[in-house]
Nucleic acid binder design. Structure first.
Length: 494
RNA sequence: UCCUCAGUAGCUCAGUUGGUUAGAGCAACGGACUGUUAAUCCGUGGGUCGCCGGUUCGAGUCCAGCCUGGGGAGCCA
């Protein structure tokens, strides 16, 4: 208030013209005002007050006398409409306000005269931060294909769809930490560079500091890693599970949430070479506790999205996938079906459907089988347990029947396997014999085996592919569109 | 990696049994319009037909190879 009076006095003293006063006032606003985020404008609008907003132009419409600018600052999917009386602004400034340009706008927040929005800003000052050449700028004020936007991944954040997707992605990451923290789990950082190649979860990327043009070789023709950075062959992790188990068998309940790398030549809308995975691991949990946790966890995340990402979800439901909200609600409200692998085989052999891959006890379930169970037979998420030991990993707890293991796969409509987990084999002799049976290098797994030697305990865990979950929660159909910069075979752009 | 479809203007696509100067909508640009909602109306410019060979008098169109992308499958999260 004092400042205002002083300024008024100065103006009187210097006999500023009206024009000077207007310029001065504009400068004053830019210097003194605090920026308001668009999200806040909509959530608690102070009608009649002067506000300062900053953002990027989505569209500009209008005529000689008045222009309407839809401004978005990323805080929400909603744009704030800026109304500018052209007589108040330089003609070149108005001309430079094009789709993609970055602006700071001050003006009065008022209720809108037009249809389509409740509030708008009557601009009194506009500062252009960054022009955007309309000819060169790839994004237009029209729909673009996902393929085109993927090639422009550096700019696609500026679209409604990708804004919504990445806001939701953030919320889900945050909710995951919140869920586990509230339950007393500890976030454990398992290594990204690993010296163990026994994880058996797929092809690995090698990590080396050696000069690839001058590799040292052993007499037998293999590469000599003894002088490499770690003194041995190292890779990027394909899973944090084994290390996670070590943490769980002391801290009780832990989870990992980190990047995971698979050098598989997988070219599908569900695979990435670099993705993020959540792997909880719990001491004293049996397979049933494990299933209960997985179901509760997923439902918590859906509920969190409904409560915190409503507008983005509604946008995606309208523009990307009309069945999204209904499907999320359906998964939230229905108990997941729990059947054993053997029961699943009985259902599949009992159906009259013709299978491309034969259904036979002992064979792994194919995509067509899983889809039938989830999308046709039960029409809800299905958890399948007790798979034949031959088709599952060495660390899974062996059942007394000698044929099956306490594995669990959670199958979702449209996505397929979203969670894979198991109760872990905690009996030293059984684990070791299985490792030897599969001819895995038990020498490299000495640390894993020691947890079974010293105070072993029943425990369980599972892995959730973060991007697969984001796929499910956003209704997007290609996994490359739910991670900012996808890494896939033949693509590491940006 | 396998099967399959596609690649033509900035974007989305059309382009006939191989034929003369390759089209449309949108976008952009110029103009009109006193409150627009992917504004509207009139006009203008814009092309290495993915790349490299081959067949042919003649190839966007046919053939071979390669590259890139979509969908499906496998592997998996």
């Amino acid at each position: 208030m004092n400042i205002n009076l002083e300024i008024q006095n100065n103006v009187d003293l210097l006999e500023f013209s009206d024009e000077h006063f207007i310029i001065f006032t504009r400068l004053f606003f830019f210097i003194m005002m605090k920026r308001t985020k668009v999200k806040e404008l909509f959530s608690s609008p102070q009608l009649g007050s002067d506000v300062l907003v900053k953002g990027w132009v989505r569209t500009k419409r209008g005529n000689k006398n008045i222009v309407f600018i839809a401004l978005n600052d990323g805080s929400t999917i909603n744009n704030i409409q800026v109304v500018a009386d052209t007589s108040l602004f330089d003609e070149n400034l108005i001309k430079d306000i094009t789709t993609g340009a970055s602006l700071a706008v001050t003006g009065k927040l008022v209720s809108s005269q037009g249809q389509g929005q409740n509030i708008e800003i009557n601009a009194s000052a506009i500062e252009l931060y960054g022009k955007c050449d309309a000819v060169a700028y790839p994004l237009q004020k029209k729909g673009h294909s996902m393929e085109f936007l993927r090639e422009n991944a550096h700019l696609r954040f500026r679209t409604n769809t990708f804004g919504a997707v990445f806001r939701i992605r953030h919320s889900m990451a945050f909710a995951i930490h919140k869920y586990f923290n509230d339950k007393g789990f500890f976030y454990l950082h398992t290594p990204i560079i690993t010296g163990s190649d026994a994880e058996g979860a797929g092809e690995m990327f090698h990590v080396t500091a050696m000069d690839m043009m001058k590799l040292p070789y052993n007499d037998d023709g293999t590469v000599d890693f003894s002088n490499d950075f770690f003194g041995k062959q190292t890779n990027l992790t394909v899973s944090g599970q084994l290390e996670g188990e070590l943490g769980a068998l002391a801290l009780g309940e832990i989870y990992t949430f980190g990047p995971t790398f698979r050098a598989e030549n997988s070219n599908t809308p569900r695979h990435l070479a670099e993705f993020w995975m959540i792997e909880p691991e719990m001491a004293f949990y049996d397979i049933t506790d494990n299933m209960d946790l997985a179901e509760d966890f997923v439902k918590y995340l859906i509920r969190y999205a409904f409560e915190n990402c409503r507008e983005d979800l509604e946008f995606l439901n309208k523009m990307i996938d009309n069945g999204l909200l209904e499907r999320l609600k359906f998964v939230l409200e229905n108990k997941f079906v729990r059947i054993t692998y053997t029961e699943a085989i009985d259902i599949l052999t009992g159906s009259s459907k013709e299978w491309e891959y034969p259904v036979k006890w002992g064979n792994d379930l194919q995509a067509e089988h899983e889809r039938y169970l989830v999308e046709v037979y039960f029409r809800k998420p299905v958890i399948i347990t007790d798979y034949p030991r031959e088709i599952k990993a060495f660390y899974m707890k062996q059942n007394d029947d000698g044929k099956t293991v306490k594995a669990m796969d959670v199958l979702f409509p449209g996505i397929g396997e979203i969670i894979g987990g198991s109760q872990r084999e905690e009996i030293y002799d059984k684990l070791l014999s299985r490792i030897r049976e599969l001819k895995l290098p038990d020498k490299d797994l000495w640390w894993y085996l020691e947890t079974r030697k010293f105070g072993t305990a029943p425990h369980s865990g599972f892995g959730l592919g973060f991007e697969r979950f984001v796929l499910f929660i956003t209704g997007m159909s290609n996994i490359r569109d739910v991670i900012p910069f996808p890494r896939t075979p033949k693509n590491a752009e940006f």
